[in-house]
Simulated assay, not measured.
Amino acid sequence: MLEEDIRITKSREAIVQAMDTLLEQKPFRKITVNDICKTAIIGRTTFYAHFEDKYKLISYILHQEQKGLEDIILNSPPEEVILHVLLDIRDNKKLYYNLFVAEMSDELQRLLQGTFSSFFTNILNVCKTEGVQLACETLPPLVAYYTTGVVGIIMWWTETDFPCLPKKSPYACQIY
């Protein structure tokens, strides 16, 4: 049983890594399941045993990214959270460009919005539970505000080829 679990885990990791590799090379829209299988060195049956389609795969990857962002938030000083997120994006700029800017589909944009919406809903619920004074009593407007801002800045920053370099202050920008 354990051996089977390892194979399943390795197959899923190979599929995810293949998508990451392909996103470094071309836009999401142009990536096919065949491309993913060829890069991961797996058969289509194996791919479909793990994911319904490439949109479910990218949703899984975005969910993993969300967990990574939550980890950054929990383990970074508050004043450095935004810096760490932006540096991660800059370090993976080709991937972010091909995923979120180049010929972005409505479905992918909804996935991106949904990922950050879920992320901010969780964070704001924790803040509310801990007694943090929020700008608004109801969460949906705050979630929409933060989500739109983050998605907008990520897209702008990626589209313009990172004209600002994040510095220690989350509100500072250093022009090249």
Rank of each mutant, 00 (worst) to 15 (best):
E24P: 00
E24S: 11
Q25W: 02
Q25C: 09
P27Y: 06
F28P: 08
F28T: 09
F28I: 14
K30R: 14
K30H: 14
T32S: 15
T32H: 10
N34F: 04
I36V: 15
I36H: 04
K38W: 03
T39D: 06
A40E: 05
A40C: 07
I41K: 02
R44S: 15
R44D: 12
T45N: 15
T45P: 02
T45G: 14
T46R: 02
T46Y: 05
F47A: 10
Y48E: 06
A49G: 10
A49L: 09
A49I: 00
H50T: 04
H50W: 02
F51R: 01
E52C: 00
K54N: 10
K54A: 01
K54C: 04
Y55P: 03
Y55V: 03
L57H: 06
L57K: 02
S59G: 07
Y60M: 04
Y60N: 07
L62H: 09
L62S: 12
H63A: 08
Q64I: 07
E65R: 13
Q66V: 01
G68S: 12
L69E: 04
L69C: 10
L69S: 08
E70Y: 02
D71I: 00
D71G: 01
D71S: 09
D71N: 12
I73V: 12
I73S: 04
L74I: 04
L74A: 11
N75S: 12
S76V: 11
P77N: 10
P78M: 05
E79A: 06
E79P: 00
E80L: 13
V81I: 15
V81E: 11
L83Y: 15
L83I: 09
H84E: 14
H84R: 15
L86M: 12
L86Y: 08
L86T: 05
D88F: 12
R90W: 05
D91T: 06
D91N: 14
N92W: 02
N92D: 14
K94E: 13
L95W: 07
L95P: 00
Y96A: 11
Y97K: 14
Y97I: 00
N98Y: 07
L99V: 09
A102Y: 12
A102V: 05
A102C: 05
M104R: 10
S105C: 06
S105I: 12
D106N: 13
E107K: 14
E107V: 12
Q109R: 13
L111I: 10
L112C: 08
L112V: 08
Q113C: 01
Q113V: 11
Q113G: 00
T115R: 11
F116E: 01
S117M: 04
S118T: 15
F120G: 05
F120E: 05
